[in-house]
Design a protein around this nucleic acid. Sequence first.
DNA 1: TAAAAAGTGTTGTTTTTACAACAAATATAT
DNA 2: ATATATTTGTTGTAAAAACAACACTTTTTA
Lengths: 234, 234
Amino acid sequence: MLFLQQIYEFMEYFQELKATKIFDSASEFDCQAMMFCFKTKFKMFDKNENIITQGNRIEDIILILKGGGIVENIDILGNISIVMQLKKGDVYGVESAYAGDEYYKDSVIATEKTLVLFMNKHRLINPCENRCKRHDSVIKNLMRLVAESNLKLLDKLTHLSKKTTREKLLSYLGLMSERAKSDYFEIPFNITELANYLSVDRSAMSNELSKMKKEGLIDYDKRQFHIFNSKIKY
Amino acid sequence: MLFLQQIYEFMEYFQELKATKIFDSASEFDCQAMMFCFKTKFKMFDKNENIITQGNRIEDIILILKGGGIVENIDILGNISIVMQLKKGDVYGVESAYAGDEYYKDSVIATEKTLVLFMNKHRLINPCENRCKRHDSVIKNLMRLVAESNLKLLDKLTHLSKKTTREKLLSYLGLMSERAKSDYFEIPFNITELANYLSVDRSAMSNELSKMKKEGLIDYDKRQFHIFNSKIKY
DNA sequence: TAAAAAGTGTTGTTTTTACAACAAATATAT
DNA sequence: ATATATTTGTTGTAAAAACAACACTTTTTA
């Protein structure tokens, strides 16, 4: 059973838990059982705090319950790149855990005050002795999340595969427009973050955006974009 | 039950099926039951034949039983890029199926004579009425595959995030060396394919490789590489 | 609300890339 | 075995990107 402290935490955070894609179909009773089963720990992080540190041994899979963070990778030469963003309901570590990795290959850093659920990797992956169907449903939900993450990575790859900054921008903005089903849309990055995401120099990208605006291909203000698709295709 | 034709096929290909990560733990009886459950079809493709065509409606998830292929994406401007390679035991379509996509976003093309198993998307994803545990084991295996695919995409993203061709090459070759646990290793691409994979101009990359060889950073012949790690770090 | 911090746009210079064209080497098919 | 197709290395040129420096704007915070 849960310790008293854990029960208090659980009661406090159950609503957040219930709102995630992983635990959405679970009852309070099931959830509580899984908390025990997965050896969960709740933990609150301040902005800029490390939730996971690159290189540390993988013990847990994390689930963001409140707030958000970035997944950051530092390569051998010290270059920092943002691999992805994590929002409420997102998980990190599932792939590495399933693939049998030993160490985290990225750091996860809170970009605001963030509540995180830690779930023991082994407990989550290996079906419990009694083969509970709650566990199965969590795995099915995890599968959907990993699949979606996969598709996000494929999207990013599509953009990064383009050779020029302009093509990268158009690939990204085109997709955003398609997703929004509109020529008007809002992007989830500011300009600096977008440059990081697309792995291009910020000032060069800013310059390219200006040119495209002058040429009438796009219009934008802050995160609001308007793409003139008719002018772009051919 | 299976039609006679299907039984013949099944008997002929059971060994290949058994050798995959998806069906490894299943008995012949279980496999046969799943063949029925997933409405499977076996199909043989010649080199350069389309196994899956970009834009077609997603009906099946595929599993490569013999041979191999490439996943190829053509963007709106007609640029072709190799998204990944598929080898014996690899699957394609799982992520899109789980994420609820309607159409294939890539084409899959056989690079040699290739045997493919088609499995009905709906049957595979939705647990069967009797909640058979074979089905669960297949899903668990699929999960591992998707997780691994995810990590492959992350690797590629790491390389593509580098700004110069040299950095991309070193990122890729460095990883290959790490994986091989040796300064000597073989890469799964020829030079032209590697340029495609890294999304750089082939001739420019060839040129860069030559320079790096002259500078004594690497040595190579065909697909055999030798990386002088000591000269590279710092 | 003032001060500090973070983000943005612009410009010029240097470095790197894409592109095109071609010869040489290698692999493939008949 | 030979012809044919594909792959590879090299070079020069034009285009594009990175980089650095700076002024200006917006956001954050104390």
